[in-house]
Amino acid sequence: MAVFRDFNFKLLVVEQLMYIDETLTPRFSIEDHMRARGIDDLHAYVEENDLEYQVLDEARAYFERLEIGDDLLASVKRLTFDGGNQVFMECAPVWDGEDDLFDVRSLDDLELVPNLKRFLGARSLTLTVPDAIETLRARGIETIA
């Protein structure tokens, strides 16, 4: 199984496979997960415990343990880095997108998605990976704002 070095890069792959392509199942829902633990009002729980600007431990544990097979990784042709990604909302349900919580810090995991052709939101990567555009283009990956 693939081992990701950058948790946030893995989340971009999960976004594509689980929430867009729907090929990585079951679809994770933090609300369902927390409801199973007896927490019915997720937003109140987050606010009462000052968890607004962090990945909930339950979500982090789930996505860190989540194994993604090589066949699914090979099916990834597009990644999107956008503050509105569903996977981000599952990790931090009241996150406002105004900080670097989900910034990708490394593109070392590109080798795990060998058929990647397009990267949407690539310009945002340059805040934490200055040579991101050049790295992507050198691999033949189309970069879109």
Results as ranks from 00 to 15, higher is better:
Ala59Phe: 11
Phe7Ser: 05
Gly38Cys: 13
Asn115Gln: 10
Asp70Cys: 01
Ala138His: 07
Arg37Lys: 15
Ala36Asp: 13
Asp6Arg: 02
Leu11Phe: 03
Phe7Cys: 02
Arg37Phe: 14
Val3Glu: 06
Asn8Pro: 09
Pro114Asp: 11
Ala132Ser: 04
Leu17Lys: 01
Glu47His: 09
Arg5Val: 04
Met89Asp: 12
Arg35Gln: 13
Leu12Met: 06
Arg118His: 15
Ala44Asp: 06
Thr128Tyr: 02
Ser124Asn: 15
Ile68Cys: 03
Phe63Ser: 07
Leu51Ile: 02
Val55Phe: 09
Glu58Pro: 09
Ser29Glu: 10
Arg27Ala: 11
Leu120Ile: 15
Leu11Asp: 10
Gly121Glu: 09
Ile133Asp: 06
Phe7Pro: 02
Gly84Tyr: 12
Phe7Trp: 04
Asp131Cys: 02
Gln86Met: 03
Ala122Met: 02
Met18Ala: 12
Val55Ser: 06
Gln16Phe: 08
Pro26Val: 12
Thr80Arg: 14
Val46Leu: 03
Leu17Asn: 07
Ser124His: 13
Asp32Gly: 11
Val46Thr: 04
Val129Phe: 00
Phe102Gly: 06
Asp6Glu: 00
Glu31Leu: 09
Gly69Trp: 04
Val76Tyr: 12
Glu22Gln: 14
Phe88Met: 14
Asn49Arg: 13
Thr143Leu: 05
Lys10Ala: 04
Phe63Leu: 05
Ile20Asn: 11
Leu12Trp: 03
Asp131Asn: 08
Leu127Ser: 10
Val13Phe: 05
Val3Phe: 09
Leu11Lys: 05
Asp71Phe: 08
Ala122Lys: 08
Asp57His: 09
Gly97Lys: 14
Phe102Ala: 07
Glu52Val: 04
Arg118Asp: 13
Leu112Thr: 00
Ala2Thr: 02
Ser29Val: 11
